[in-house]
């Protein structure tokens, strides 16, 4: 049979209600399939093209600009209720190419491909000269802060579960305060905090109804005086068990 190239269905606008409806479905799909970091929200529809689909419906190609929210992917809060991260916190944006089909008002995502990157240092410096620039996730100070914070969190209450690090998701140096700030996700193990003290190597990620994810914010301030102790602070939120929710990729990549 003769191959007929797809014809452009019509010339849609990026802010057309139909394009927006498709973009919302695409962003929900992207959030559902996130493997790292934070849930995102739609910032701008860059491009859209519709192609005729036989026998009916259409194929939609979208280019979306998304921005990071403050909800880590382990946070059960729906993405639409999450707060978009402020630009002053060195926001991270993502460029996503999405292919989807629409039939009778129903959308189905076929493929997404996203690339995320922080606001460029130059632009960030211009828009917020005194703000703290994001550090690399493997920055030694960030990593040390996270490990010290998790140790402290596990030690704070010997009656609760013992937690392991799932991933470091953000970190930056606090230049004026001579310190470090970091955010990270955690998961509980099958050990109590007391048991983990002596047999940490035997502790594995909890399973079934006992599985709980958490998200922590930690800061470390180096003391100005030589003889004074440095100051650590850590706050973690542990979420209720979410039936059917697994983050195997995070567990396999970072914990095991």
């Amino acid at each position: 049979a003769e191959v007929v190239p797809p014809t452009v269905h019509k010339v849609p606008g990026c802010d057309d209600p139909e394009t927006e409806a498709a973009a919302r479905v695409a962003v929900a799909y992207i959030n559902k399939h996130l493997k790292h970091g934070y849930k995102v929200d739609l910032n701008r529809i860059e491009k859209v093209r519709y192609f005729e689909r036989r026998p009916h419906g259409k194929i939609m190609d979208l280019e979306l600009d998304v921005v990071e929210t403050t909800c880590h992917l382990v946070d059960p809060l729906p993405a639409e209720n999450c707060t978009v991260r402020k630009r002053e916190e060195h926001a991270v944006e993502g460029d996503c190419d999405v292919k989807m089909i629409e039939v009778d008002g129903h959308y189905k995502v076929l493929r997404t491909k996203c690339h995320s990157s922080p606001d460029s240092d130059e632009d960030f410096q211009k828009s917020c000269p005194n703000c703290n620039r994001l550090s690399r996730l493997n920055d030694t100070d960030v990593v040390n802060t996270v490990h010290a914070a998790l140790k402290e969190y596990n030690a704070q209450n010997t009656t609760h579960d013992h937690y392991k690090l799932l991933e470091i998701s953000r970190g930056h140096h606090l230049h004026l305060a001579r310190g470090v700030y970091a955010e990270f996700a955690i998961v509980n193990t099958n050990c109590s905090a007391q048991h983990a003290k002596e047999h940490e190597d035997d502790c594995h990620v909890a399973t079934g109804d006992h599985l709980h994810y958490g998200f922590c914010k930690a800061s470390f301030h180096k003391s100005a005086a030589e003889d004074a102790a440095d100051h650590h602070e850590v706050h973690c939120t542990v979420y209720d068990h979410q039936p059917g929710v697994h983050h195997h990729h995070l567990i396999h990549e970072h914990v095991e």
């Binding site: 990026c14 394009t19 529809i45 921005v67 926001a91």
Partner: peptide, 23 residues
């Protein structure tokens, strides 16, 4: 009679608006 059509009317309105900020 021939009527000149506006090109602007046929141009797609993309990219769309920023919902949060311009990065």
């Amino acid at each position: 009679p021939l009527v000149k059509r506006s090109i602007l009317a046929a141009l797609p309105e993309c990219p769309g608006r920023y919902r949060h900020y311009d990065l």
